[in-house]
Write a protein that binds this DNA or RNA. Structure first.
Lengths: 251, 251
DNA sequence: ATTTTTCATTTGTCTGACATTTAAAAGTCT
DNA sequence: AGACTTTTAAATGTCAGACAAATGAAAAAT
């Protein structure tokens, strides 16, 4: 963002000024004009460049900060800096967005379930090939935890997520792990919430064990089969729950 | 958000007040205390509830608006409303985030390519099963476009994206389409940018035709094979480009 | 009854001020 | 000279008050 580009915004546009300014800066970041860790002009300088008040500039910067595109630092030599969008930053946003998409859009259980397992099955062959002892250890540890009788439903669900997370991370592909974060961490709890009343923990632990065994044996085919059975079992559970609810509502 | 919960924030916290307020409202949305299309208290009322100035409240609201969690409307009976996060809203955010993640994190070509095709192969069987004539028509039309000699590289790339997009959408699962948006629309251009100098359009069109034929014939296996060949071809192209660059740099 | 006008409400923007944080510069002591 | 302390300047964070602009609803006029 050089000093020259004073007028990038249209005061007569219907869009709010802070939106326009945020978009202009965002474009500059995406377009490579502003590189990672580069310091943006100070708020006062941005006021002059865009010919707006400081409030407006600040609202624009807050919009960008909310998307992790910039970070701000107070004090001398502080300011707003282009943020390196890390996978760690993007994970929770992805999970939140996925959670809200599911809860606000009446996505059917079958649709969510299908997407979640289709994506996970895409990772399984890679995980069977590359998983480290660490990933295996995590999967085994979660299986042990899931076998303990006193475990609450919440803890079982959390362990379930951790198991599948380890499976996905075993593929050793950060892009896949990021993409799957939404599926595993948003959809799995949703499914658990629906099916936990009906499920058999023994059945799930058995399937998890078969998956872990296959991953340990570098056996992609068996892992895929086990995942398909887990899919089928999950759908069966849902049908049972729905049937039970229908029977209850009728009585 | 009832009137009672006046103090949800800690003025002594190190976090900015606007961040805390945004988080409190966000939690209320995620937690279901605020439902879709519900009106938030006016800015003035929020000032009183949180005991902060209007600027601070507004910065908090702008943070939420940047994440599409709320929308604002001016005028009488206006205000801030909980926004239904639609897949349409989430798509571009997903693409932007994926693009920035790739450009800022030195993800290797192989890693991105692997993730992109693994996810796409997860969709292909479903697409072979459910694709409508519309999806097929789009794929065929893009193949025709890609065969035209005068096409610029940019247009070829855009058509490539549209082809794969139609393939993914054929699975008729909005969750999958959303998850894949980042992969297809962010990674495909990246790959094209690297490989376009070396690629043979005829080869790609031939592979696309095989994929479309298989999808039309509901033949998931053949579609998968063709996608694997496209993966291999893409990686070959990359190797050629890298070798050419190495040779050029040496001379 | 219909149209027009007025009006109150709410967000958008501007101005100016002060508080707080922070690193660098200046000063001080050994 | 070097190490420590103090001061200072720059920047963001917060506050207060004002006006502009949009907008729906009520009141008034036709």
């Amino acid at each position: 963002m050089k000093n020259g580009d004073v007028v990038k915004i249209d005061p007569n546009s219907s869009a709010d000024l802070s939106v326009q300014i945020a978009q202009a800066i965002k474009d500059a970041i995406i377009g490579g004009e502003l590189i990672v860790d580069e310091r943006l002009p100070s708020e006062t300088e941005l006021c002059e460049q865009f010919k707006v008040s400081r409030s407006t500039v600040r609202e624009a910067l807050k919009r960008l900060a909310a998307q992790s595109l910039i970070r701000t630092q107070r004090g001398a030599s502080g300011g707003a800096f282009v943020n390196r969008l890390s996978f760690e930053d993007a994970y929770p946003q992805q999970v939140t967005t996925s959670t809200l998409l599911l809860s606000m859009n009446a996505v059917s259980f079958d649709t969510a379930c299908e997407a979640r397992f289709a994506l996970e099955r895409a990772c399984a062959p890679l995980s069977a090939q590359r998983r480290t002892p660490d990933h295996l250890a995590t999967m085994r540890a979660e299986i042990v935890r899931q076998s303990q009788p006193g475990l609450t439903d919440e803890a079982f669900c959390a362990s379930d997520v951790a198991f599948h997370r380890a499976l996905v991370d075993g593929a050793d592909n950060p892009v896949l792990s990021y993409q799957l974060a939404g599926a595993v961490e948003a959809m799995q709890p949703l499914m658990n919430m629906i099916t936990f009343t009906a499920r058999s923990r023994e059945e799930i632990v058995a399937l998890h064990t078969r998956i872990a065994d296959a991953i340990e044996a570098n056996d992609a085919t068996t892992a895929d089969t086990a995942l398909q059975e887990l899919t089928a079992y999950t759908l069966t559970l849902k049908d049972n729950v729905m049937a039970a609810r229908a029977a209850r509502d009728k009585s």
